[in-house]
Amino acid sequence: MALITFSGFPSSGKTRRAQQLKAHLESRLQDSNYSGPKLKVSIISDDELNISREVYKDGRAEKPARAALFTAMQRQLGQDTILILDAMNYIKGFRYQMYCAAREMKVRVCTVFVVATPDLCKEWNAAREDERAYAPEVLDSLIFRYEEPSSMVRWDSPLFTVPWTDEDVPADDIWKAVTEGIVKPPNAGTQAVPKAPTDALRTLEHTSTTMVAALMAEQSASGGLGGPLTLTVSPTVKAHLTLPARNITLSELQRLKRQFVTVHKKAITLGTIEKGAVDWSEESVAEKFATYIEGNLKA
């Protein structure tokens, strides 16, 4: 349904704002005037995943912590969930990664930027009594490295800024964004690449070899007159093509076959950007190779 990404300095009050927003959203979903789909509101955070503040001391430890957060987000994201991601999310590349995952799932997105001054964050961090405070040097480092969200980039939009002076979050605007906002479709960068079947390489090689042999046999029988020709590839597959009125050599056909196989082998091994299902059946390969021969044989 929707992904709401929180972002802000460490100890800036993100968790309090996330809880405020969760309460507002659940209240609206339970309201008698609400007639939309049945939804649940969930929060994912470092605390929920038992990620220690210590990981932010070392980039090598922080990377798997972000991966755990991303995996948990992917697992819970769905059409029946408004998911609140309560974390610093201070790296714009990581926010973009989550945005792409949300687009692939076809859910709405928005970002909540919780703002507090560095001095206030340090003060609130020092006053914490839940054993989840950041070490002073880690706090300074994270504030220095923080990459602020911007409404000018698509992965942070729509962006809602909540300064420390506000008593509450802009619940009305966020509710409208997650229930009425535009659902951006997946693009080429977010879609999974369709893969060829395991026997595609064998079918490609066998079918093209069979067609070369059949074409040479038919040409020998007709004396190289050219014109429309039907090749029998297998008991159930036939290929139709038109040949020029001249004798075609085996070396020409072998060269075209190598070129054809090389191009399509790359599509099989690396995937393809074609939309929908890709057909690597014997019939489809025979049709493609016949078209390729027609287009590349010179009269």
Rank of each mutant, 00 (worst) to 15 (best):
D199F: 02
K195N: 10
A245Y: 05
A214V: 14
L229A: 12
V233G: 09
D166N: 07
P228N: 00
E218R: 14
T210S: 14
P186Q: 08
P235R: 08
P194W: 15
R154L: 08
P235I: 04
G223M: 03
G181P: 02
L250F: 02
P197K: 07
T249D: 03
V193E: 06
Q191K: 15
K195S: 13
A200L: 06
G226M: 09
D156E: 05
P149W: 05
P163A: 12
W164P: 01
T161W: 02
H206Q: 14
K195R: 15
V178E: 03
P197F: 04
P163L: 15
N187P: 10
R246C: 05
L215V: 05
E167G: 12
V237W: 02
I248G: 08
T232K: 11
T209V: 07
R246G: 01
P170I: 02
A196P: 06
P186I: 04
L225A: 15
P186V: 02
H206F: 10
S157E: 08
G181N: 00
T209Y: 07
T242K: 08
H206G: 01
A192R: 06
E205K: 13
K176M: 13
M152A: 15
T209L: 12
H206C: 05
P163V: 13
A221Y: 09
G226L: 04
A171C: 00
A221K: 15
I174T: 11
P158K: 15
W164N: 08
T207A: 07
L231V: 03
D173V: 03
T161Q: 12
K176V: 11
P170S: 00
N187M: 10
P244K: 14
V169Y: 07
T236N: 13
T242M: 04
D156W: 01
V169E: 03
V169T: 09
A217K: 14
T236Q: 15
P197W: 03
T207P: 08
T190H: 03
I174G: 10
